[in-house]
């Protein structure tokens, strides 16, 4: 089994490189269209035009666009993502500080989306043909039409403000000890340092944003799981299993679900990509210190190095997710393992 996986990984990694070059080129050129003078911004407000011109030359802004891109890309390959104009710190440090928070949020949200999606899909499947189905069907369509930021605002107001059940600002409450940074993932770090209080507090902070995100990603999963289960139950091998006297529960878990999960999985990959983009708004609403907030600050300050790098990071994450999904698909579907 490892042979085909390695083959697939190599093939996918080969396509990742041109994709990244294209995305970075696009990002670079589009951002250059902004009426922003990076040189002027890097100098005190009272700098003279000569000083700005000198700065432009120093920063390489007088070079042709493609050459500027070449320099940026060359630096990036060596791990130098530039310096933030606003914060005056290395962009890589800023992104590495915030990326784990965002990944943590997205993974947890995807977990919720999977649980809601699979349970909801099974429920929809079991209710088929009955009166309940109509209601559930309408419900799932309604869910489908609610975006993540509405859920976020709603949860914040209901569970955070009115009922005061859960915290809704940041990653940790004030006065809660921050564990030392090992992986950057708060949940993992607090567990590693054995700080259960911090772990619980971080977990409570994550519930509202991740459930909001997860709920918005769940309905398509529900619906596709339901319809692929319905397709699978038409298959001969289900009929044959019943003729062998295999129980319905076993048929569902062992025979139907694994087959029905294949189309669901490819959709989940797409959903995870969307969800990762969706973290941006949710982070803003919950003042969650992730990459989304960094991005919004950077846009406000026209901080081009940060915008470029964060944009590229989103792209890398989505590519990684699709590779992971492809590998999972390969593992679950024996027919693909041949070639």
């Amino acid at each position: 089994m490892s042979g085909p996986v390695v083959k697939l990984l190599m093939r996918r990694l080969l396509t990742v490189i041109p994709t990244l070059i294209m995305v970075s080129l696009l990002l670079f050129c589009v951002l250059r269209l902004l009426p922003v003078d990076a040189a002027a911004m890097s100098l005190p407000p009272n700098a003279t035009n000569d000083e700005i011109a000198a700065m432009r030359i120093e920063m390489g802004l007088d070079l042709p666009l493609i050459q500027q891109y070449g320099i940026w890309f060359g630096d990036m390959i060596q791990g130098d993502f530039g310096t933030s104009i606003h914060f005056r710190t290395a962009v890589s440090t800023l992104v590495l500080d915030t990326l784990p928070a965002t990944i943590e949020l997205a993974v947890m949200a995807m977990g919720f989306a999977t649980v809601f999606g699979v349970l909801g899909g099974l429920w929809l499947f079991y209710a088929r043909g009955g009166a309940v189905e109509v209601g559930l069907d309408l419900g799932s369509v309604a869910l489908l039409s609610i975006p993540e930021f509405l859920w976020a605002l709603f949860f914040m107001l209901l569970f955070g403000v009115s009922l005061d059940l859960l915290p809704f600002i940041g990653r940790l409450g004030s006065g809660v000890a921050r564990p030392e940074t090992i992986t950057g993932f708060l949940l993992i770090d607090s567990l590693l340092s054995g700080n259960m209080a911090t772990f619980m507090d971080a977990l409570r902070h994550m519930i509202l944003p991740s459930v909001a995100l997860g709920l918005s990603a769940a309905p398509p999963i529900m619906r596709i799981l339901r319809s692929s289960l319905m397709d699978v139950y038409q298959e001969d091998y289900i009929h044959q299993a019943r003729q062998r006297g295999i129980s319905e529960g076993r048929i569902l878990i062992r025979h139907a679900l694994k087959n029905a999960f294949l189309p669901t999985l490819s959709l989940m990959g797409v959903q995870f990509g969307f969800l990762f983009g969706g973290t941006l708004l949710v982070e803003i609403i919950f003042s969650y210190p992730g990459m989304g907030n960094l991005m919004v600050d950077a846009i406000r300050n026209a901080d081009l190095p940060i915008i470029q790098t964060v944009g590229l990071t989103y792209c890398v994450m989505v590519l990684l997710i699709s590779i992971v999904v492809d590998v999972l698909y390969l593992v679950l579907n024996p027919k693909l393992r041949e070639a």
């Binding site: 298959e235 091998y237 044959q240 299993a241 003729q243 694994k258």
Partner: peptide, 12 residues
């Protein structure tokens, strides 16, 4: 069964 190929579960 009639269709031996489809009467066996493809992922097991």
């Amino acid at each position: 069964p009639q269709e031996p190929l489809s009467a066996l579960n493809p992922v097991l």
